[in-house]
Amino acid sequence: MITTYLFYLLSFLAIMFGSMVVLSKNPVHSVLYLVLTFFTIAGHYVLLNAQFLAAVHVIVYAGAIMVLFLFVIMLLNLNKETEPHKSIWLKASAAVASGSLLVVLVGSLKGASTIQSTNAFNPNIGLIENLGTTLFRDFLLPFEVSSILLLAAMVGAVMLGKKSIK
């Protein structure tokens, strides 16, 4: 019972903070609201019994990536004068396009309540032992491939960060 209330509270907060990210005038405020959004999403992970995912989500997104975002935005010193101004036609076409997308989404999700999951949901999958066993037994190849992808991205970032490549 209490989890249902928590779910609605967290969902409400997530949507509210998510809209504040878009609506805030100040980019630093947007970043801070995004951090709060990540916290509410981490709360959802805890409700799904995925504690490991929740902790890693907070460490990686809120603790590292958003700090870098904040870092860059603080250095850029964005303000009203540097804000790009869009023409009225662009704004109108954006409104029409996003409205059509909303219609398509509503249309496709109309019958969503009848969708059944094919695999039974295991509530203990998010616990760290089960997650580790699953990752290293059933999904070993995708796991290793994604780690190689991350390594390649890391090497690429170091190469780009160098001042001169000889």
């Binding site: 490991f52 902790a55 890693v56 907070v58 460490i59 809120a62 603790g63 590292a64 700090v67």
Partner: peptide, 11 residues
């Protein structure tokens, strides 16, 4: 991980 998460938020 909890400890590490809270430390990373300290900044």
């Amino acid at each position: 991980l909890y400890l590490f998460g809270v430390i990373s938020l300290g900044v």
